[in-house]
């Protein structure tokens, strides 16, 4: 039990009935919010309140509530997943806010992430990018090789693992002034290209995934670095450089 006193907050929440609706900001009051509650719990409380008043609750994406699924997309007070580093919205605690504070809550904004309803956006563009090359074409039916059969340099294994921790949340796109998806795509390109199994298709993969990314209407990278700062998994800009390298050499070598 926390002895701290509850927070009274003014919430400015983006409400939008469906993808066609124009939408707008609505203002709500919540009171006596425990500083120990998570941001999503605070939204749950708001929704209980709205339901009690006979109003439509705020639609938002969430699943694991422990920072691994990447669904809890919210742009809070001008930052993806709110203040704090290396966390998702579900890992954000209300103790980060002051009593009486006004909090803006908006959906990810990107042409490639259209709003479905309220704070929910359609991130299937990421799925299509993955489908365009984010895999290794090996037969895994019944004859899977032992993972340790191929020796892999520890450094590369670590870098591939770091890249693979990307949860596809889209905070990189949401934070980027150009709504660019380079950090996400580069993490996915890197997690494969750093390992021998992924190297065979590395060149084609880089080209296909980058082309799909452009087709989805994401912006271009201008190296502001906002993505890496806001990424809950601290994916590094090194991955973007690696993808640029691969894309360049693949384009030059292409017939």
């Amino acid at each position: 039990m926390s002895a701290e006193k509850g927070l009274n907050l003014t919430l400015k929440v983006w409400r939008q009935k469906n993808s066609k609706d124009k939408g707008g900001i609505e203002t709500y009051q919540v009171s006596n919010i425990s500083p120990d509650s998570s941001f999503l719990e605070m939204i749950d409380i708001l929704n209980e309140q709205l339901i009690g008043e006979g109003k439509e609750p705020v639609a938002f994406d969430h699943d694991c509530r422990e920072g691994i699924c990447g669904s809890c997309s919210m742009y809070i007070n001008g930052q993806a997943h709110g203040p704090g580093r290396a966390i998702t919205t579900c890992q954000l605690h209300m103790r980060e806010f002051k009593d009486g504070e006004t909090i803006y809550i908006e959906p990810w904004r990107a042409g490639a992430f259209p709003v479905i309803k309220d704070l929910m956006v359609d991130r299937s563009a990421f799925d299509r990018i993955m489908a365009s090359g984010g895999f290794v074409s090996v037969n895994t039916s019944g004859n899977t090789q032992d993972a340790n059969a191929i020796p892999i340099e520890k450094v590369n294994a670590d870098m591939a693992f770091d890249a693979a921790t990307c949860i596809g949340c889209g905070a990189c796109v949401a934070s980027c002034k150009n709504a660019s998806a380079m950090l996400f795509v580069s993490a996915k390109v890197s997690q494969f290209s750093l390992l021998p199994q992924g190297q065979t298709e590395a060149k084609q993969r880089a080209i296909n995934m980058v082309n799909q990314m452009d087709e989805e209407g994401f912006g271009n990278c201008t190296n502001t670095g906002a993505c890496a700062v806001e990424c809950p998994k601290e994916i590094s800009l090194e991955n973007i450089a690696r993808m640029n390298r691969e894309y360049l050499s693949a384009s030059v070598a292409k017939e």
């Binding site: 400015k12 001008g78 803006y104 904004r109 490639a112 271009n220 502001t224």
Partner: peptide, 18 residues
């Protein structure tokens, strides 16, 4: 790049990360 974000944020704090 402007086209890639047709609807802008009502409140954004770009200085926090770049």
């Amino acid at each position: 790049n402007r086209k890639a974000r047709p609807v802008k944020y009502a409140y954004s704090k770009p200085g926090a990360n770049s």
